[in-house]
Design a protein around this nucleic acid. Sequence first.
DNA 1: CGTAATTTTGACGCGCGTCAAAGCTTGTGG
DNA 2: CCACAAGCTTTGACGCGCGTCAAAATTACG
Lengths: 256, 256
Amino acid sequence: MAESSGARVVQLSGIRNACQDCSLFQLCLPVSLGAADVEMLDNIVERRKPMARGAHLYRAGDEFVSIYAVRAGALKTYAISADGEEQVTGFHLPGEIVGLDAISRGTHPCYAVALETTSLCEIPFVTLEDLAGKVPGLQHQLLRIMSQEIFGDNEMLNAVARRSAEERLVIALLSFSSRFGARGLSPVRFRLPMSRGDLSNYLGLAPETMSRLFRRLQDQGLLRSEGKEVHLTDLSAMRVMAGQVPDTACERTHRG
Amino acid sequence: MAESSGARVVQLSGIRNACQDCSLFQLCLPVSLGAADVEMLDNIVERRKPMARGAHLYRAGDEFVSIYAVRAGALKTYAISADGEEQVTGFHLPGEIVGLDAISRGTHPCYAVALETTSLCEIPFVTLEDLAGKVPGLQHQLLRIMSQEIFGDNEMLNAVARRSAEERLVIALLSFSSRFGARGLSPVRFRLPMSRGDLSNYLGLAPETMSRLFRRLQDQGLLRSEGKEVHLTDLSAMRVMAGQVPDTACERTHRG
DNA sequence: CGTAATTTTGACGCGCGTCAAAGCTTGTGG
DNA sequence: CCACAAGCTTTGACGCGCGTCAAAATTACG
């Protein structure tokens, strides 16, 4: 998958930089950044020591300084609601970028915490912005990523607002599937980095409901799961359930 | 409200341009754009003939060329799901910008239709991007707006995912309140540009539920509504219900 | 190996979606 | 200016999905 645009990968892999290890995948890969541009980008990126599980990258209210690219591990972002409840707002896997929601106010609107041992690249935002002004390709790419985020959020909003609990879970699993797949990992067999509780919170469901759903999907033969390991055994059926496919008279398990 | 930063308003009002009539409010106002910059921006903006209610600005799949600023009227954006259902993804009021979700794919992911007679400014994106490369303030502002959008979407996702129907409606009403308020209109008395059906669809509720909710909120003395006219009579109580305020031992109508 | 956190299971009730039908607008043509 | 049709909005009755409470089983971690 990551191999698809051969020429550029070769170009990038000549540089021992942040892009090579996939962390700036989103910023570098899909667009017209020359090797020199990538090197400039690499120069402003700061590596950070790996974070331990449970450590916070930033907290709500912290001053916004940098955005971060996940190199390995995983983060969750969450807010604390007025009544003190934790509300999980997102999960961030390797190759993805965190902190874009802080640009507008200058402070982070949510917390970011490591779900497992996690290493990151820090990208100071003023520097990135400055560089983007000089490198049109980078500016475009930055806008693309943010647009992507808006689009994805809208999708998720749709997904979560009007679908049943089962559909929500299926949609979330397919999302992880394609995100792992996009990084060259298996799209059908992976390890969820978050607890069931975090996942249910994210989807706006009770943990008990999640548990029952996993069992039901397993009984329907759509997946096998033990602990955090998940094996999706019928992607196309799941896509039909998620409404990601026109459903041309395939047999549906329910509501046919 | 719009009067708050006196110097800049004077500066802008000297120019007979798109900013003066509020349509590029988001791009111009809150940041360090000089008069010359604003004039350059104004030059790339194209006015368009007002659109009739029901007319489409763009459709899903259309090539992405421009983003649009609403000058007057209102738009709704929606997608058609795999099973043919319309899914309302957003409403866009004067001063707001539409089309940002199309940047990443190069095609519009949803439909945009006028809810009433609506006039717009068209901003060709390649030109805007080019200009943003030359005017750092504009680039920053563009990123700010997109970040704002991401933040707002996340909020909405939170709102809609785990709140009751009543809370969803209250949150939506407060959102309109502050958006109208930010444009100098009354934050407590306004006309909703969309039908109840569109609003319920947006919030992931049945129209019947919406109807019952409006009645209930009215019975609780939180608002008065007739048709699309809405009068919010107890903003602070609504904020408490929406969880936008710590709720320091105020009397709550329910669940105390 | 022990304690705490997480996940699972079951029972139960309520919120809200669904179906059905009655008002109420809105627009159009005579 | 009124009549009629096609939406919208409202109201009521009913049932199911999923949240909640409670407790057991399992896992994680020091």
